[in-house]
Design a protein around this nucleic acid. Structure first.
Length: 212
DNA sequence: AATAGGCTCAACCGCAGCTTA
DNA sequence: ATAAGCTGCGGTTGAGCCTAT
């Protein structure tokens, strides 16, 4: 490997230049930031450095025990979807979460312990399979989304259907065998309640979503 | 005190999906 | 419609610190 391809840590002078350039060009125009900064860093490196260390929204303190616990729980829900986890951990980057998880993984493996602590393990066992009725309900909702005019859900107005469309943009993230949880911050409570009311009226006998 | 091995974290890579011209 | 450029993501790797011997 040549010296050109080696990892090169950012100096404080480079950080200052980057901060100044982001102020001038904004947080979205990384090619311009890279060009005008005079740094020999590409746009991706600039973006990464900003998001992981320099952004005023970033929390540079070590993880708290509560955050560590949250990461383990979130991993049991999302798997390796680091960017989704950042939505539950304000100020934390996907890279940090991933690093924490990898360290956790190594420790658990070394100690011959199961991946998740017992309380999370038992939560998972209670939801390992989607029941046939839940699968039917999911398919009904999918069908109503694909053909909203042919199968309008009985009590959903246009606004609620829009909310559901937003939900389904990320639905596959949640449709792992052991997860049907959603974050109530991301969706209107009224819309979720309406879905559950409609589902219960179909005699499938269960609520589709728990609120995280 | 020297050093080898382990560990952590920052940085980089490659790819997929999106945007724009 | 399409090609080029950009963004964001998850996986991987290397530098440097820490610890045990």
């Amino acid at each position: 490997m040549t010296s050109n391809t080696r990892k090169r840590p950012w100096s404080s002078a480079e950080d200052e230049k980057l901060i100044e350039c982001v102020k001038q060009n904004g947080e979205r125009n990384w090619p311009a930031v890279a060009n005008f900064s005079g740094l020999s860093r590409d746009s991706k490196s600039c973006r990464l450095r900003w998001l992981n260390h320099l952004s005023p929204r970033h929390n540079n303190e070590p993880f708290t025990p509560e955050e560590e616990c949250t990461i383990i729980q979130l991993h049991s829900i999302y798997g390796n979807k680091w960017s989704l986890m950042t939505k539950h951990l304000p100020g934390r980057s996907d890279n940090e979460i991933k690093n924490y998880w990898n360290t956790w993984l190594k420790r658990r493996s070394k100690a011959n312990l199961p991946l998740y602590p017992s309380e999370i393990q038992s939560q998972l066992q209670n939801q390992t399979e989607l029941s046939p009725s839940t699968t039917v309900a999911i398919n009904m909702i999918r069908a109503s989304l694909e053909m909203p005019h042919a199968h309008p859900p009985p009590s959903w107005d246009t606004h609620e259907q829009d909310d559901l469309s937003v939900f389904f943009d990320t639905f596959d993230e949640f449709l792992s065998p052991n997860s049907i949880l959603v974050d109530s911050n991301d969706f209107e409570q009224g819309a979720i309640d309406a879905y559950n009311t409609d589902l219960s009226s179909t005699n499938h006998g269960e609520q589709l979503f728990n609120i995280f």
